[in-house]
Amino acid sequence: MILPIVAYGDPVLRKKCEPIGEDYPQLKELIANMWETMYAANGVGLAAPQIGRDIRIFLVDTEPFADDPDLDDAEREQLKGFQQVFINAEILEETGDSWSFNEGCLSIPDVREDVSRKPELTIRFLDEEFQEHTLTFDGLLARVIQHEYDHIEGVLFTDHISTLKKRLLKNRLSNISKGKISVDYKMRFPAMKRKR
């Protein structure tokens, strides 16, 4: 089932999310709905707060980036077919010299900004079978994971940009929360009484 994506301005996007256990109600169904919602919106990642749940779960599928001609063969291979559910994730370390990349977010449609992040991370998480993993990722794959991880920490990519850029975006962000934007996927706007 395709769920509405929560728009900028909703308090759930600012909550530090709670860990979940294997007994979380209808978890398999929730994960299936999150995949369906993400694909319907042409996203490469989706976190639970973006569908109104303040729980520590996000998922990533970087396949759409695998065709980028600017990437080297090794990075394209890493992105190709990478599909993962992250439950109760914790970033253990981020290393390397920060680099900028133009990011966007399904909860903040039509806004893209350069965000600086470290190129490598080590993360501990549970998969959908509640098996624990500690893995290291780098490059664009690490960035997608960092972006989604931010969501479960109550952080948005716009928090990483300069104060000046935030001021310049203020009206656009306000319009997003009011639903004054055209999107081709289902959204829920905090400043509107009805769902769209």
Results as ranks from 00 to 15, higher is better:
149 Y>R: 06
125 F>M: 08
7 A>V: 01
149 Y>G: 04
49 P>W: 10
162 S>P: 15
5 I>A: 09
99 W>M: 05
118 K>W: 06
23 D>L: 02
164 L>W: 14
89 A>V: 03
3 L>G: 05
13 L>T: 05
64 P>G: 06
40 A>N: 06
187 M>V: 04
47 A>H: 08
10 D>T: 02
175 N>C: 02
46 L>T: 02
61 D>N: 15
53 R>K: 14
14 R>H: 07
196 R>Y: 09
42 N>K: 12
81 G>T: 08
105 C>F: 02
144 V>Q: 00
172 R>F: 00
2 I>A: 11
120 E>F: 08
118 K>F: 12
137 F>S: 01
80 K>E: 09
156 L>N: 00
173 L>F: 11
117 R>A: 09
122 T>G: 11
108 I>A: 12
170 K>N: 08
45 G>D: 04
19 P>I: 15
148 E>D: 11
148 E>M: 04
76 R>S: 03
142 A>S: 07
81 G>K: 13
131 Q>F: 15
66 A>V: 07
77 E>D: 08
106 L>D: 04
5 I>G: 15
86 F>W: 10
32 A>P: 00
10 D>I: 04
85 V>N: 09
179 G>V: 03
134 T>H: 06
72 D>S: 01
16 K>Q: 06
40 A>C: 07
157 F>K: 03
34 M>R: 01
4 P>A: 02
41 A>S: 12
24 Y>H: 15
12 V>R: 14
24 Y>S: 03
185 Y>A: 07
12 V>M: 09
157 F>E: 12
45 G>Y: 02
117 R>F: 02
103 E>Y: 00
105 C>K: 04
100 S>N: 15
132 E>R: 03
183 V>K: 14
104 G>I: 07
186 K>N: 08
23 D>G: 13
187 M>A: 12
21 G>L: 04
158 T>A: 10
98 S>T: 10
23 D>F: 07
29 E>A: 10
34 M>N: 08
95 T>V: 06
131 Q>Y: 11
81 G>R: 00
166 K>I: 00
195 K>V: 01
87 I>S: 07
22 E>D: 15
180 K>E: 09
